[in-house]
Design a protein around this nucleic acid. Structure first.
Lengths: 330, 330
DNA sequence: CTGAAAGCGCTAACAA
DNA sequence: TTGTTAGCGCTTTCAG
């Protein structure tokens, strides 16, 4: 910037003001300075700017993976959500700082905040970090979390009504005449816990007795989901319906069915969750509970920017909807 | 940091040195200072640090979308690659700054470099920005590009041998007895151009006469691919084989086949590209040219860090391999 | 081993 | 309208 000042024969302040579009600088001068800067490929250093202004024009997108053993981002949900968030953030002229947190250490969120690299934080999923999120939200407002709305929660969440999603999925299986409906997912995660509650409610309403073997834990990676599916089928639980808490888990279960000479929907009617882009493409096409991630990302970023502007807006819960395909109906 | 200095009763310099792990500071003092910092949730401001050190501990991941009308990141290839790159960068303790460039303006790469927000740049795909990449590479070494290796290219690329990939895909279709083999893709992109060349070579070697109607342009979004597929089928070209330059395009073509009462592989044998995670799951399972993105990401980041260390390493070309599934063999 | 002081590139009073 | 100057929070000579 000093160089540009020297070349144009004005002071550094004038260059700064011109490049920032200050109305104090006459049109002609501004143009001239901008032209010199452009022709020399000069761009303001956002570090120095941020240091001074305490604004970074950057949003942090955080993927907490406290619940997963493997460190790879494998479920397409994260990537689809990330893509949509990236689109929304870019649209507003902000940069994106992407952080994948594999093994959250105490105080990790505060460290992220203290580093002051970002003007706000979006979390894709709560993982098992509810307490940490709650603690940080006490003193920091510029964050929005995708996930479940929990009681006594001090941070802002956007998420599907998971209990309702679990309910309509299970209800649909019951309507198809299925009686031994299994659940595949990890209820220790808040979102999954709520889907599980919806599943239980639907079963109870229908007067189904729950065989505990039908209620099986499963993680989000394809490998662990495959193991869980094999275990469920080997347990003697003999399910005739399955509500899986992600499309990947559902698809792995259908593959596992094939390994024991059975198929969906004939032997087991299957419903997944997310309605990811592959759900309609697999064989059989997968019934799934749809969450509108495009809308979700837009809402999250909208709320985040309003929070950055000091407006303490509340979270939003979205109604998911069931998309019925061949995997669950004969 | 001034606060921490005050609390520990030492100077700012000492705190700085202690927190940076300087050997000048005795173990005991260092521990004490670190403890005070930790208990107060203090974290060094990377901006101020970067401003001083001229190092950011950040890698820029750039997705240039000059070739696409739509601004959404839709093809799973980008997201899978992004996921792997994120894993590799995180592994090395660097941050990730994600930039999606929708409408590249002249000088956009230099602007990215000049902003000095990152220590290095990874580009996912060349898009139509070969000239711009070449120009910037003249004066900036810390970049690695996923894409085709082009003659007279001054930047470092990692990519599959696309010509070979196109060749083995087409060759396989010919070996299946197909004679009217169509191509679906946008050859104006460097990678696709090379796949197209491989396609042509295989056709010529087999003595096939090329009906120009078989050679159809298609973009990477599902919507435009669907249109292109419909157009190809309506053109009277009557293909009995198809090499599609992405899995999404291949799947859209298979859907389009269904719309005119035909199917794969009976009427048209289909091969895609990328072997994305959905290829084995769709119906019929999709034959595809596999690029190992895990390895690719590792290599790209490895090369980038060596370049950051001043070693001007060359790019790498990887051998893709054909994965044959039901969509191309009866 | 430790501290004082300069300066990284920028913005924003305050003066002129 | 423009320039001077004082920091933003950090690292790093240079002197002790």
């Amino acid at each position: 910037m000093a160089d540009i000042a020297r070349m144009t024969g004005v002071s550094i302040s004038t260059v700064s003001r011109a490049l920032a579009g200050s109305p104090l600088i006459p049109e002609a001068t501004r143009e001239m300075i901008a032209e010199v800067a452009r022709s020399h490929g000069y761009v303001v250093n956002p570090f120095a700017r941020g240091l001074r202004m305490k604004r970074t024009q950057t949003i942090g997108v955080v993927i907490p993976l406290g619940h997963e053993q493997r460190q790879l981002i494998s479920d397409p949900f994260f990537l689809e959500m990330l893509g949509h968030l990236a689109d929304e953030i870019t649209l507003r002229g902000y940069e994106i700082l992407l952080s994948k947190i594999v093994a959250p250490k105490p105080g990790w969120i505060d460290a992220l905040i203290q580093a002051q690299r970002t003007d706000g934080l979006v979390f894709i999923g709560q993982s098992d970090q509810h307490a940490a999120l709650n603690a940080s939200a006490q003193s920091y407002d510029q964050m929005v979390v995708w996930g479940a709305h929990l009681p006594n929660q001090d941070y802002c969440t956007v998420g599907a009504d998971n209990a309702y999603g679990g309910y309509i999925a299970t209800r649909h299986l019951i309507d198809q005449g299925r009686r031994r409906i299994a659940f595949l997912g990890d209820p220790s995660l808040p979102e999954i816990g709520q889907r599980h509650a919806g599943y239980l409610r639907a079963c109870q309403e229908a007067g189904l007795t729950l065989d505990p073997r039908l209620d099986a834990p499963a993680h989000f990676t394809a490998e662990t989901a495959a193991e869980a599916a094999d275990a469920l089928l080997a347990s003697g639980a003999e399910p005739d319906g399955l509500f899986a808490t992600s499309d990947v888990i559902a698809m792995e279960f259908i593959k596992a069915l094939g390994r024991v000479g059975k198929s969906a929907p004939t032997d087991v009617a299957v419903v997944g969750f997310d309605d990811s882009s592959l759900a309609p493409l697999v064989s059989p096409p997968l019934s799934s509970v749809r969450q509108d991630l495009t809308a979700a990302a837009r809402i999250m970023i909208d709320l985040l920017f309003r929070r950055i502007d000091g407006e303490l807006v509340d979270g939003v819960q979205m109604k998911p909807e069931l998309v019925v395909r061949a995997s669950s109906s004969l």
